[in-house]
Amino acid sequence: MIQLGAVEFVSQEAHEKFLQNNIKTFDELENFPSIVTANKANNYYTYFYYIKEENGRNKYLIDSIFMR
């Protein structure tokens, strides 16, 4: 059984690290430390994912990524 979820406001820095394969787990993505600024040029992304349980471990499948 799989379940759909979303992570909102992923920072540009976290997004780049994810694409470079430097963020390897869901926990790392969710807890990535980002400095918040009022700069309007900041980009944020929404990740839609499916979560699936396999042998006692959770597997996250990124479905789509949207720029906010």
């Binding site: 979303a6 909102e8 406001f9 920072s11 969710e30 959770n58």
Partner: peptide
């Protein structure tokens, strides 16, 4: 319990606010 978070919706995790 594989996760818990505060927010408006139970399936959306807002990691900025």
């Amino acid at each position: 319990i594989h996760n818990y978070h505060v927010g408006q919706h139970h399936k959306n995790i807002d990691i900025l606010h």
